[in-house]
């Protein structure tokens, strides 16, 4: 790999710009494919194929003529937006970071969202609906609400439900969750929308401590991400 290409790739990664690194598995010639430009020489057909793979985040080998090409997708990391700088968040945040997620915590309450409680994480003290709108959840984003407070959770959920977020979950008992669904229904969300919400959040692994609850949420989120059997909830 040429140093200049490596630098460009690293710059794209730190700017969270999707890029596909395409390598000819013959002589090792390489090109970087972005949505709007290509660095290096590559047949148009391969550029288009690489862009499709980048969009689907599906790296792999392509054949073109007699040459095999490897497409390596560099998409920004998956994100988890955590609403509520609460005790469970303090364990969920480092666990999610270890699992490779970019984590953002939203909590407008100054005594909760402190860097002492949440070192090295992006903390937003805006009102949740504003913060969520700014963050613009996409299909590589999960949203977890943990405050138990409808004033904070609901506005965040309303933005999440209008987005492509791949996982939306809410902490709270079944009773709390039923009331939450009633409020959201009154706000105009239909059953199909409400069905996207995982509540109570997390797989049923008998979690009790904050760390165990964080683990169950991360496990459920992983199952949903990979469409694994554990992702299908009991009715």
């Amino acid at each position: 790999m040429k140093a200049a290409l490596f630098e460009t790739l690293q710059a794209a990664r730190s700017a969270k710009r999707p890029a596909a690194l395409v390598t000819a598995l013959s002589d090792g010639a390489q090109a970087l494919v972005f949505h709007d430009r290509v660095d290096g020489d590559l047949p148009e057909e391969l550029v288009l194929a690489a862009r499709t793979r980048l969009r689907d985040n599906a790296g792999g080998v392509l054949e073109h003529g007699d040459v095999r090409y490897f497409v390596d997708c560099h998409n920004p990391p998956l994100r988890i937006i955590v609403v509520g700088a609460v005790h469970i968040s303090q364990t969920l945040v480092p666990m999610a970071a270890i699992a490779g997620y970019e984590v953002i915590v939203i909590d407008p309450r100054a005594s909760f969202a402190t860097t002492d409680r949440f070192p090295n994480v992006r903390l937003l003290d805006d009102w949740p609906d504003e913060a969520m709108t700014t963050l613009a959840p996409d299909s590589r984003t999960a949203v977890v609400t943990l405050t138990h407070d409808p004033k904070l959770d609901d506005p965040a959920l309303e933005v999440a439900l209008k987005s492509d977020a791949f996982y939306i979950a809410c902490l709270g008992s079944r009773r709390t969750h039923a009331r939450r669904l009633d409020r959201l229904r009154d706000a105009g969300f239909d059953d199909a929308a409400l069905d996207r919400i995982h509540g109570p959040a997390g797989l049923a692994i008998g979690a009790v401590s904050p760390a165990e609850i964080a683990l169950s949420i991360l496990a459920e989120l992983t199952a949903v991400l990979h469409a694994a059997p554990a992702a299908s909830r009991a009715a």
């Binding site: 480092p94 970071a97 270890i98 490779g100 984590v103 070192p119 090295n120 994480v121």
Partner: peptide, 9 residues
């Protein structure tokens, strides 16, 4: 407190 960036890196 653990430096989570150390894990991520």
């Amino acid at each position: 407190m653990t430096d989570i960036n150390a894990f991520a890196s």
